[in-house]
Design a protein around this nucleic acid. Structure first.
Length: 859
RNA sequence: GCCCGCUUGAUGGAAUGGUAGACAUAACGGACUUAAAAUCCGUGCGCUUCGGCGGUGCGAGUUCGAGUCUCGCAGCGGGCACCA
């Protein structure tokens, strides 16, 4: 049997190279001052038990970068670990009666095996699991350090309360105002909770965005909007006939003449005071508190208010009395929890005014428009303009008027310029079991007492029961009871645990020194490896995870842990994996594996043969069953094929459609490449044979293509244009396959081209590339082989094809010497018959010559 | 509701403001084969009087020249602080 009849044995080959890389410790990272470091990190997964296609895409992207940078001579750190705390483990415990710790550890083991089958170049010695005490003990210490640094405080905060299950619900567990399991109407409850002062760094977090020049623009914008810096005025309104007054915050002090009402949040202290002897108001406040805690719920709810009967006096308009409402769209957490409403120039205020029949007075008009002609219907005018109907402010621009009013109020001592942020402090308390215990003890006589550092870690007990509703830590027989570190009297442990964003806010630093026991990491290791040079993950983390990590980095710096300004220097946000959806005749979702194509192209349910309805391609999700199991793909086609498919066609930041045909196409390419090297069309000269003195024209052309591909694929990888890199490699593959002549030069150029192809394809198809590298006669591992350098002499062309247009329309092309003089290009273009016939003997009005690109004749 | 993104052949996509559709996928035709698979070769936006004309979601604008820049509109998708 000739080699061309053999088939590529994917499974054996991939397993072989994975074993060799592991034995030779190819991917271990060590600190090394002699080489530039490169830290590439993919967002670590929640250990759900099986990898999904999103993981495959994420880790393939990271691995291509890691392998490429290694070949470019960088000292690469490429670690992996587990974001192991979280709700699903508790849900599994309740549903399947498995302890969360066991469930999580089994999932980690299963997923680790799956990830290893992908051939990812991780330093597995640095693996971390956040649910293990040797990880979370360090964040307990960080919390205590933050506490000492004044970055932690306790305050009352609202949560979603399920009255039937006696548990706090996550926003995602509240569906249409009801608990997802119990179906009970969710209430808001006040609980005493721990907060981290992220707002202390608000300005720095905002300014820091300017330094992140390798982040996607839209993520920077989302962070900027999240921080939400605004400049405005805090202003005190006296209450008519009361000793009391009300302080409001506004970004539109210029519209004070158009004020129609004041509104306070349902949780405003004044509302609470008034409600104490007003049952109707108390009921209204209770209704507000039944709304979800999410911003979307607040914003989309119908604007409602309760007239308190109080009036406030407009400080700018003598004698004007404004009714004071309690309103459901005013947030206690933002500004002062009180606003003045100017219906003509704010949409929410207008909606409110229309509902309660309040006056709408125009005080800003577009430049040059008669204010009398402006009629406000259902849309407020919030654009820039000139002040009208505003006494002394008339004629001023909006920004001048703002400054004038602020100055006036500051002068009168009833207001002050104020910078406000939408950003709120980070509530880190969670009333859940499967999380890192908050290292605090509550003592009846000493109050809230931090656990002394020498008593860390506070270990999460694993012998817990989910039989009773509520937090298992609360009804654990012994865990809660501890002696007060101050007075020694019997006291209670804090049963809340940390938000799981806590763990993911510093894991990137832990990877720098994962074996360190004294602290989370050593300063030397962190300062060597950080910042992460390239971070890769889903866009869904664009705001919270990234912002919390940026905050942690600052807080850790404040506490002397490290000395970097930002955790992630570069960021790549990948798109989602989508797949067609299928529904059975009775309207149930079907897995793609349960659907087959009939001979006539129609879709049928496997087994029953019933017809299947095809739905649009959507994000892969368990609920719609449009998922494909990566494990099955890797078993059937191999890791290289799965990796190639992830990189082909779609740019990484865009959504990717998973198709059967696409994976087949990738598989065909893997086999084609294998055949080309194993059974080339002509015998290859030995490694290192001297190049012939001259090459035939066709061979010379191929060599140019080879070297151009080397140069361009490098550029593509630097810019993460993986799909373009794949396209170029396919072009080179086609070029090599087309080489027909069989003189010495051709054979030499074929070896040169094949070797280049194998080395260039290595970051994407590492197993196949190693195999083919050996096949080509090399003994050194490809993982240790440097990236090739293109021969500059072969990159320049001596002639170029130039497009010729008349009035912007293509009329022909010209082959011109490279960098030909402009007048030569112009003369050649005008001489073209197609150009001459359009000009019809008349001289052109103008000729634009872009050297080596285009000649445009303006007739 | 607010914020953000996307829209190019049958499909995924390519195109420093300069020849729209590279490279793939599906389809179709051919070669090889007893046959199929695999493989290889070819066709491949629409209209056309074969000279061309029209085409990058829709409508305007800037420019010698617009898929690319500007404004407006539509459709689809994502995020919104206790999912991670």
């Amino acid at each position: 049997m000739s080699r061309s009849d053999e088939r590529y044995n994917v499974r054996e080959t991939e397993a072989k190279w994975q074993k060799i890389w592991e034995e030779r410790k190819s991917f271990l990272a060590r600190e090394d001052a002699t080489r530039p470091k490169y830290y590439v990190l993919e967002m670590f997964p929640y250990p759900s038990g099986r990898i999904h296609m999103g993981h495959v895409r994420n880790y393939t992207l990271g691995d291509v970068v890691a392998r490429y940078k290694r070949a470019k001579g960088f000292n690469v750190l490429h670690p992996m670990g587990w974001d192991a705390f979280g709700l699903p483990a508790e849900n599994a415990a309740i549903q399947n009666n498995v302890p969360p710790a066991q469930w999580t550890r089994e999932n980690i083991a299963a997923m680790r095996t799956q990830l290893k089958s992908m051939g990812l170049s991780y330093d597995w010695n640095r693996e971390v699991a956040t649910c293990e005490p040797d990880y979370y003990r360090h964040e307990q210490k960080m919390f205590l350090d933050f506490l000492k640094a004044g970055l932690v405080y306790r305050k009352e905060s609202w949560v979603n309360w399920d009255p039937e299950e006696h548990t706090v619900l996550a926003n995602e567990q509240v569906i249409d105002g009801r608990g997802w399991r119990s179906g009970a109407l969710v209430e808001k409850r006040l609980l005493s909770q721990w907060f981290l002062k992220i707002t202390a760094y608000a300005e720095d977090l905002l300014q820091g965005l300017k330094t992140l020049d390798r982040w996607p623009e839209r993520v920077l914008l989302m962070q900027e909007n999240w921080i939400g810096r605004s400049e405005g005025l805090r202003l005190v309104f006296p209450l008519d006939g009361q000793d009391d007054s009300l302080e409001i915050y506004t970004t539109r002090p210029d519209t004070l003449h158009g004020a129609a009402f004041l509104a306070i949040a349902a949780n405003h202290p004044l509302a609470a005071k008034l409600a104490s002897d007003n049952a109707e108001l108390a009921a209204f406040i209770a209704e507000c508190n039944r709304m979800g805690t999410s911003e979307a719920a607040l914003e989309t709810a119908e604007k409602k208010g309760f007239n308190t009967g109080l009036y406030a006096l407009n400080p700018l308009v003598d004698g004007q009395k404004l009714p004071v409402y309690v309103a459901n769209f005013v947030l206690m957490d933002y500004g002062t929890g009180a606003i003045f409403g100017c219906p003509a120039h704010d949409q929410r205020d207008l909606d409110f005014a229309r509902k309660y029949d309040l006056p709408v007075k125009v005080v800003v008009a577009p430049q040059g428009v008669d204010p009398a002609s402006i009629v406000i219907g259902t849309e407020a005018y919030s654009e820039d303009g000139v002040l009208v109907n505003s006494g002394a402010l008339n004629g001023l621009g909006v920004s001048e008027a703002k400054a004038r009013v602020i100055a006036m109020m500051e002068e009168r001592g009833i207001g002050q310029r104020s910078v406000n942020y939408r950003l709120r402090d980070w509530g880190v308390s969670r009333q859940r079991y499967w999380g890192c215990p908050i290292p605090i003890i509550h003592c009846d006589s000493c109050g809230v007492v931090p656990v002394p550092e020498d008593q860390l870690p506070v270990t999460l007990p694993e012998d817990v029961s989910f039989d009773k509703p509520g937090n298992p830590l609360d009804h654990h027989p012994t865990w809660k009871h501890a002696a007060c570190p101050c007075c020694g009297a019997p006291a209670r442990r804090e049963t809340d645990t940390f938000d799981t964003f806590f763990e993911s806010s510093w894991y990137f630093a832990r990877y720098a020194a994962p074996q360190e026991t004294g602290r989370g990491f050593t300063k030397t290791a962190a300062d060597y490896w950080l910042p992460v040079d390239q971070y890769i993950g889903g866009i869904e983390h664009a705001v919270l995870h990234l912002l919390y990590s940026r905050f942690f980095t600052r807080a850790l710096k404040t506490c002397g842990y490290l000395d970097v300004a930002e955790p992630f220097a570069g960021l790549l946000t990948q798109g989602m994996i989508c797949h067609e959806t299928y529904k059975s005749a009775d309207g149930k979702w079907l897995f793609p594996s349960d659907v087959e194509k009939a001979a006539d192209g129609s879709l049928l349910e496997t087994g029953s043969g019933k017809p299947v309805t095809l739905g649009r391609s959507e994000k892969m999700s368990k609920s719609k069953k449009n998922v494909v199991d990566p494990a099955w793909i890797i078993e059937t086609y191999g890791a290289d094929t799965a990796r190639l498919f992830m990189l082909s066609d779609s740019p990484p930041e865009r959504d990717l459609d998973w198709t059967e045909a696409g994976i087949d196409g990738a598989f065909r390419y893997v086999n084609r490449l294998w055949r080309m090297v194993v059974a080339p069309q002509m015998p290859l000269p030995p490694i290192g044979s001297p190049a012939p003195a001259a090459f035939a024209a066709a061979v010379e052309k191929l060599r140019r293509q080879t070297h151009k591909t080397i140069a361009l694929v490098g550029e593509d990888l630097e810019r993460f244009h993986f799909n373009k890199a794949v396209a170029r490699l396919r072009e080179l593959t086609n070029g090599l396959a087309d080489l027909k002549s069989d003189d010495d030069g051709a054979a030499w150029a074929l070896r040169e081209g094949l070797e280049a192809l194998v080395v260039l394809v290595n970051p994407m198809l590492p197993h196949l590339a190693e195999e083919l590298w050996t096949e080509l006669g090399h003994t050194e591992l490809l993982v240790n082989t440097p990236w090739p350098v293109a021969d500059a002499a072969l990159l320049t062309e001596d002639s170029v094809t130039v497009a010729v247009q008349v009035n912007g329309k293509l009329r022909g092309t010209l082959d011109l010497p490279k960098d030909a003089p402009q007048d030569q290009a112009q003369a050649a273009a005008l001489a073209l018959p197609a150009v001459a016939s359009v000009l019809n003997g008349k001289p052109p009005r103008k000729v634009i010559v872009v050297p080596n690109r285009i000649v445009n004749v303006v007739a």
